Simulated assay, not measured.
Amino acid sequence: MNSIIKLSTLISMTALISACGGGGGGGSSTTSSPAQATEATTEEALETPQETVEALQIEGTQDIVAARDFDFSVSETITLTVQYSGESDGAIHIYSDVAHTFEDGSVAPDPMSRITTLFASDSQTVDLEVNGNWDTLYLNWVPNLASESEQVEVVTLNQTSHSYLVQF
C-alpha cells in the first residue's frame, strides 16, 4: 500500500512538472525587440576592417601569448597586528565574508569564509596572504572564559602600507 502511494505521488508530480512548461508568446508589442537590437549590433560589428578581424583570429592555443610580467595571482600580503588587553586566553578567527548584518550595524562573519585562527598566547603580528579583491576582513574574538564576551572587529583593507592594527 505504501509503495502504491509513493508511485502515484511520483507519477502525479512528474505530470505536474511536465505540464509547467516554458510557455511562450501571447501578446504583441510595437517596440523593437531585443533580437532586432542584437542584429543591428552584430551588423555594426561586422563592419570592422578585415585586418582587425584577421589579427583577432587564433587558430590554436599555441598562438596565445601573454606578456612576460602577466600573473593570474590577485593575492597580496598584509601585516596584521592584534593587541589584546583581556584577562583570558582565546582565539581570533579571521573571516573574509559576512553571513548577517544586524539592525544595529554589527555583523556576524560567515563561518564558511574563515581564513585562519590566531591564539592570544601566540605572536601578535602575523603576515596574511589575502585576495586583492577583498575590501574587508572580519576578526571575531572568542574568549576561553564565559565572563568575557565575544567581539567582532571589521578591518577595511585600504591602506597602502598593507599594515593593520586591531585592538580587542
Score class of each variant (00 low, 15 high):
Asn2Val: 12
Ser3Cys: 01
Ile4Trp: 03
Ser8Tyr: 04
Ser8Asn: 08
Ser8Phe: 01
Ser8Cys: 12
Leu10Gly: 01
Ile11Met: 04
Thr14Phe: 07
Ala15Pro: 00
Ser18Phe: 10
Ala19Ile: 14
Ala19Phe: 12
Cys20Leu: 05
Gly22Tyr: 04
Ser28Ile: 10
Ser28His: 05
Ser29Lys: 05
Ser29His: 10
Thr31Ile: 07
Thr31Glu: 11
Pro34Cys: 03
Ala37Val: 11
Ala45Glu: 14
Glu47Tyr: 09
Glu47Gly: 13
Thr48Met: 13
Pro49Thr: 13
Gln50Ala: 15
Glu51Ile: 12
Val53Tyr: 08
Gln57Ser: 12
Ile58Phe: 10
Glu59Thr: 10
Gly60Leu: 01
Gln62Lys: 07
Asp63Leu: 06
Ile64Thr: 02
Ile64Arg: 06
Asp69Pro: 00
Phe70Ser: 04
Phe72Asn: 09
Phe72Arg: 06
Phe72Gln: 11
Ser73Phe: 02
Thr77Ser: 04
Thr77Val: 05
Leu80Cys: 00
Gln83Gly: 02
Ser85Gly: 07
Gly86Arg: 00
Glu87Asp: 07
Glu87His: 03
Glu87Ala: 06
Asp89Ser: 03
Ile92Gln: 00
Ile92Arg: 01
His93Asn: 10
Ile94Asn: 00
Ile94Gly: 01
Glu103Ala: 12
Asp104Lys: 14
Asp104Glu: 13
Asp104Ser: 10
Pro109Lys: 06
Pro109Val: 11
Asp110Met: 05
Ser113Val: 10
Ser113Phe: 06
Ser113Gln: 09
Arg114Lys: 15
Ile115Pro: 00
Ile115Val: 14
Thr116Tyr: 12
Thr116Ser: 15
Thr117Ile: 11
Thr117Glu: 14
Phe119Gly: 09
Ser121Gln: 12
Gln124Leu: 10
Val126Leu: 08
Glu129Val: 14
Asn133Ser: 09
Trp134Ala: 05
Trp134Leu: 15
Asp135Trp: 07
Thr136Ser: 09
Leu137Ile: 06
Leu139Gly: 00
Leu139Arg: 01
Trp141Leu: 07
Val142Asn: 07
Glu150Gln: 10
Gln151Arg: 07
Val155Gly: 03
Thr156Gly: 03
Leu157Asp: 01
Asn158Cys: 00
Asn158Thr: 03
Gln159Phe: 00
Thr160Asp: 03
Ser161Pro: 03
Tyr164Ile: 06
Gln167Glu: 14
